[in-house]
Amino acid sequence: MHRFANPARFQRLAGAILPWSAGLTVLLSIVGLWFALVASPPDYQQSETVRIMYVHVPAAWMALFVYANLAVASAIGLVWKHPLADLAAKAMAPIGATFTGVCLITGALWGQPMWGTWWVWDARLTSVLILFFFYVGHIALTNAFDDPTRGTRAAAVLALVGVVNLPIVKFSVDWWNTLHQPASITRLDAPAIHPSMLTPLLLMALAFFGYYVTVLILRLRHEIVCRKLRALRLTQGMGAPAMVEQGGS
């Protein structure tokens, strides 16, 4: 029964957080979009395309942040065999992959007007692309087993391997990029961000964070429901209804 005790506490906590995170996400999105699309000035170099930054950069931040979360959840799941941590890791990966996908697509849409090409093998783009492959591999591995626990545990090991490997990938891609510097491109990262740009950037980042919390709670609840259903099916499948009734009477 203790296996269900923690999820029950989670359900109560999640029930308290969910309305706030959902409401704040909507509110922050509206205000953030207003600042991002209307109330902020165009950049003197990049003109209106700078507005892509307000979704691109928060998505990149969230892609990394979710991976950090995934790694922590995986470590907890592996070390303490905490069932909720396993499920959390499983619930996080698709959200992280989505943020990474958003980052890549908006990056391409920003690169085309700024660099004249949809894709450059820029160090950052390349490492985000590899991060995306990591997420995809994680999701595929999670779902590759008939026993879901085996899937989450294997994926947890993969996530921790990624924690060691991803910084090395980042380092090697940076190195590789300095070796093969393509014909000079204007870097996207403005050295100093004007406060008028910082406001929409931070608002959108907070909105993305609220979205992450909201969707994570929904997905985690779904995972808990699935686990309960599986437990029910197992007891039914093993011809246990008689036992259930004995226990009930």
Binding site: I130, F133, L141, S172
Partner: peptide, 26 residues
């Protein structure tokens, strides 16, 4: 990791190739 997985032959490159990037680069 892919021991006992469904379609482990396809899954393995997906997991391992991103990890190979640093070796390839250097």
């Amino acid at each position: 990791l892919t021991l006992g997985a469904r379609r482990s032959g396809v899954l393995l490159p997906l997991l391992v190739l991103p990890l190979y990037v640093p070796v390839l680069v250097f």
